[in-house]
Design a protein around this nucleic acid. Sequence first.
DNA 1: TTGTAAGCGTTATCAG
DNA 2: CTGATAACGCTTACAA
Lengths: 325, 325
Amino acid sequence: MANIKEIAKLAGVSVSTVSRVLNNHPYVREEKRARVLATMKQLKYARNMNAVHLITGRTMNIAIMLPFINHAYFSLLMEGAGQEALAASYRLILCQTGYAQDKELEVLEMLRNREIDGIIILSSAVTPEQIEAYCPYGPIVCCLDAGERLFSSIYINHAEAFRRAMHYLIDRGHRRIGFTVGRLDSPSTRARKTAYEEVLKEIGEPYREEWILDGCIDLEDGAAIMNRLMDMRERPSALLVTGDHVAAGLIYEAEKRDISIPQELAVIGFDNQPIGKMLGLTTIDNRLLDMGSEAFKIVYAHIQGERKDPVRKELPFELIERSSV
Amino acid sequence: MANIKEIAKLAGVSVSTVSRVLNNHPYVREEKRARVLATMKQLKYARNMNAVHLITGRTMNIAIMLPFINHAYFSLLMEGAGQEALAASYRLILCQTGYAQDKELEVLEMLRNREIDGIIILSSAVTPEQIEAYCPYGPIVCCLDAGERLFSSIYINHAEAFRRAMHYLIDRGHRRIGFTVGRLDSPSTRARKTAYEEVLKEIGEPYREEWILDGCIDLEDGAAIMNRLMDMRERPSALLVTGDHVAAGLIYEAEKRDISIPQELAVIGFDNQPIGKMLGLTTIDNRLLDMGSEAFKIVYAHIQGERKDPVRKELPFELIERSSV
DNA sequence: TTGTAAGCGTTATCAG
DNA sequence: CTGATAACGCTTACAA
């Protein structure tokens, strides 16, 4: 496999000239450039990018850390980041962690080991402090509000969105409100829980632990909620559901049991996925596609040196009214 | 940032010894090993993997080429490959192409440039011949039957699955059968079309171009089919739908219009996605998760040198009977 | 506009 | 068990 040296010898120039041609540098006589190019073609030259990476200290790779690949929420974020990466000629390295801390730390180590130029964290189990320890090695951006940190954040205000949704329900006469979450100990769940308590206090309703439905991640979980609801001696009249797919599962199961939505149970989703649109689901659009692309742009700006300090950017959300409330 | 040389000097050993420690080689006196390890910790040593990649000629990266990230079909395949990659300590590089040939060729070039050790192609627009041109540079596997090639294939027999589904419908009294596809010019569509014509001939039904519904990729496309069907002077009594999400959109739209399924329109899906299960969709399980993980394993076996010749492996499919027929 | 030579940070080889 | 030293293939001062 030919290298730059052989090309140089055969073309009768120096390796630097070959390198200049390779990198589209100016100051190469057209005649020599042509000769180099011809020799490359003749020898089927292929650049060894690892050598380039070694000398330049860059890999054009960014890791995207996420717990599950096969989930609509992460797919949308990935899509957003992926489009930007494509445009910037960067590559996304898929790092599925399943929320295992050791796997997450491995990804962070990749940054230290210069295997990647930056990291986009879609969701993780490690603490912000653990992440900060890796900030000296390259830009990191998180898709949630981690507060004032050494790394960047791009997020929507979950507490605010949650409050907005609750008030929307309250304005329409609901007082018995419950909600579903994916993981009880996630940062966004904590934000929602706080908002939940606050709003309940505002309207003088008691806080009921049993109306916080945990472990709702997918379609099937949404369908399963219905069973849990049926078992309750007192049921909420409205549900805030994290994830339109969970809401879709719930709606479908409700239909099966002849529970009419919104009359017997009002539902507000999150994420604004196509399935929600199809089902007439009232939902919070949290701009996942934009968030993914913004996340990439932030990391990219840091890599390019256009930016030095961490960014902390809030994206506006939007409540989309349809017919499930 | 400390390197192997500094570690060696500070620990009072040679670089080779440090390298041996790094790679868990035997033949290092325990005392020296400890000293090296301690020095590394002290200097916060981080290995520069690019140097390792350069000298070893391996990157531990495999590209996964696909047109769209945000699609359930590809998500499942990715998930399968991702799990195996995780287990093998390999990384997946996400290469979204949008079926643009130049982007696809860029991915193939990455193999030539030694940026990756292999490629998993989930779906592509380039020809098998174009792919074969890159086989000298590393293992490539395609998730469809490309025939006897220099690269590997892992696939289900689409024609057979299609025939099976058609006969299932015919056995239940259907003769007016249509089908939907994503792209008209894809290899699996061609296989389906051939099977379609054959079976129609078998039962003496005419071939109707207008019952082949093109451009059906997502939920919304499924819903849109209903409009197309309504415009027809004569409608099929059964539809083979490529992709459970498309089928789900169709079913939902049918429900809206009070068209009963399966009485007025029978539907068979493909992919066996959760949404299909929820909707009681009869479908073909084409083992996407297994296909993804098998794809990774094949490439991996080649990289490890456990295998030399290309693999061509067919996965069995299964018709899952539910209530949409 | 071009060439020489010094790295980049490892691992591999080979002699001890 | 250990250490010199030569690759790996490229970019980039610096000098011409």
